[in-house]
Structures are given as structure tokens and as C-alpha cells.
Design a protein around this nucleic acid. Structure first.
Lengths: 168, 168
DNA sequence: TATTGTTATACTCTATAACTATA
DNA sequence: TATAGTTATAGAGTATAACAATA
């Protein structure tokens, strides 16, 4: 599944047969997926993969992945916070976050300073270059989100966002 | 985020502050995630991870993962189809599917027979043991789905499923 | 004792490429 | 030439455990 209007329309045409229809009546060339049609996790995963694929492609010029984007955004909005705080908020393992931050530091988008109050923790900040990059990143992320709205439909996107937000 | 009623209620309490509120007013101990509150992909990913985690934990007794479940279900509903057909329907790379099928064959849940009409392709079938295992797997998967409905609410689950299905 | 950050290992999943055997 | 399946490799993400420094 790709996130394009053409594919979406194809999917809409293919969806004429209701999920409750017995599997024996599925056309010979199409596979019967009736049982999966009742699984929230199945569709959740498919849409998530499609959305992330489109995000990654849209942000390819800056080579930023979804997790990196969320970390940069959180550091920008919460300068000086620790790795533990960022990791907990985003549900990223501290081991994984440590490696990701090394990469962002290598690109000179963030810097770590020793925390004044706690010798164990590092305070995280965007560098000037990081802030500049984030401005470009945000423009591409906004384009990604606008593409999604165009494919999904604005009001459907809003419904989906509200439903998902209940659990995030 | 875990998929439990307790966690859900905590999340609901924590959601009092609207997403549009300026970040400067976020409490000092909580991180400001206002910008992510508008990202469909962010919540889609969080919910998908939570749902898969619960699925994996529920099916732990049989050690079946979501992708394996979907493959078994598709073979059961479409006996004799090729790896290519299964892979295309589920959006699984043929290389990945080949390894997964080896594992399912090792467990003696599926078997491959040479296709009668095409010497290149393998026809996939459940074994008797595979059919028996799938019956147990389906009971656990149904429990997983029921748990989800309990946490999310039946009507919200139905709305979410319908919205997601538009793109799957 | 517990926490912060780091390194290391293992496993899943994704993305490719190269290869064989068939068509 | 194209397709079906296999094997191999590389990278991202997840899950652990172990460790040093600090609380």
C-alpha cells in the first residue's frame, strides 16, 4: 500500500465486497483476507508503514527519520532536558536514544552539556545549525502531513488523529 | 504506553491540556509535545506498537508473532496459493517470507508442494498440526481483540477499524 | 541501592542484490 | 527476458544485560 491518490482509489474500488461475505465467494485471483478484515492491528500496521514510508521519502533530502524528527522537535521545545526525560516521553529505550543522539551530535545538530544539578545526566540543546535544519525539516514534515490530508481527506484525518490521540 | 485500562485512564487524565495551548505553559516536569500532537504518524506508531506488544504477549504461549499469524490465516483461507501471492497480499518481501515459511515448516505447521502448473512456484498448505495450532492461535487472537475492545471501547474500536480499513 | 548514560549482543523487520531454476 | 524462490548482507528498531559514574 502506497500513499497516493491513485492507489487509494484502486483500494476503494477493490473494497466493494463487504468483510462479512463468506470466503468461498472470493474471486479466484484475489486472496481471501476476510479474517484479517476484523483485526485492528493488521490495518494499524499497514497504515503506519505507509505513512512512515511517505515521511521518510519526503524528508529524504535531509535524511531524517521519524524517530529523529520527534527527538529534534522535543529538544527544541524542551531545551536543557535530560536523555532520560526525552526517552521516556517518546518511549525510546535509553540505549537506542544514546546512539541516535551520537548521530545527531555527529551532524552537529544537537549538543550535550553536563547538567548543573546532576553529574550523571546530560542536558540536551539544539545547536544553531540544528535549529536551522529543524526549520527545513518542519517544512518537509508539513508537506508530508498535507499530502496525508489530501489522500485521506481533511475531516477523516482529523477523526483518525482524535481517535489515535485517545491512546497516545 | 501499555494497553491496559489503568494506563488508558492515566492518559485520559493527562490529556486535559488542549493541543493548541502554547508550549510555554507546559508544567515544568512534563515535556512539551504540542508539535507532535498534530502528527498522525506519531500516534499511529505509538498505538501500533502498543497493540502489537499486547498481541505478542497474548500469543506468547504459542510464540506466534503478528506477521506469522497473518500468514497462517491466509494460507488457511487460500490453500494451494504461491508464496508470491501470499507475500503480495500481506506486503511481505519474498525474501522475508521465504525465511518465515522455513520457520513455519520447521514447526510442521505448513508444507510446500511443487505447483502442478508452474515448476518455479510452491503451493502452500497447512498441515493437520498447523490447522490444530491455528485453532488455538485464533482463540488467543480473539482474546487479544476482545481486550482491545475493552480498553478502547467497542464503538470506538469499530470507528477506528473502519477508518483504517479505508487505506488497507 | 537506584539512576544516568554507555557499550554490547541478539532478534525482528525492511531493503537490496545476486543467484538458480524455471517460464 | 522475466518470474519464483533462495541466500546473503546491511540497516533500523527493540529488548536485554553489564558496566562506570554519580546520586
Amino acid at each position: 500500500m502506497e500513499l497516493t491518490r491513485t492507489k487509494y482509489r484502486e483500494a476503494a474500488r477493490g473494497r466493494r465486497r463487504p468483510a462479512s461475505q463468506p470466503s468461498g465467494l472470493a474471486p479466484a485471483d484475489r486472496l481471501d483476507i476476510a479474517e484479517l478484515n476484523e483485526r485492528v492491528g493488521y490495518f494499524l500496521r499497514r497504515l503506519q508503514v505507509a505513512v512512515f514510508t511517505h515521511f521518510i521519502r519526503t524528508l529524504k533530502p535531509l535524511d531524517v527519520r521519524p524517530a529523529q524528527y520527534s527527538v529534534l522537535v522535543l529538544i527544541a521545545a524542551n531545551p536543557g532536558r535530560s536523555q532520560a526525560a526525552i526517552g521516556q516521553a517518546l518511549n525510546i529505550e535509553r540505549a537506542r536514544l544514546a546512539r541516535m543522539l551520537h548521530e545527531l551530535e555527529r551532524r552537529q545538530w544537537i549538543e550535550r552539556r553536563a547538567a548543573s544539578d546532576d553529574g550523571r545526566s546530560h542536558s540536551l540543546f539544539l545547536t544553531a545549525a540544528g535549529a536551522k535544519a529543524l526549520a527545513r525539516i518542519r517544512r518537509l514534515a508539513a508537506k508530508h502531513e498535507a499530502d496525508m490530508a489530501e489522500v485521506i481527506g481533511s475531516e477523516r484525518r482529523a477523526m483518525l488523529l482524535e481517535l489515535l490521540r485517545e491512546f497516545g
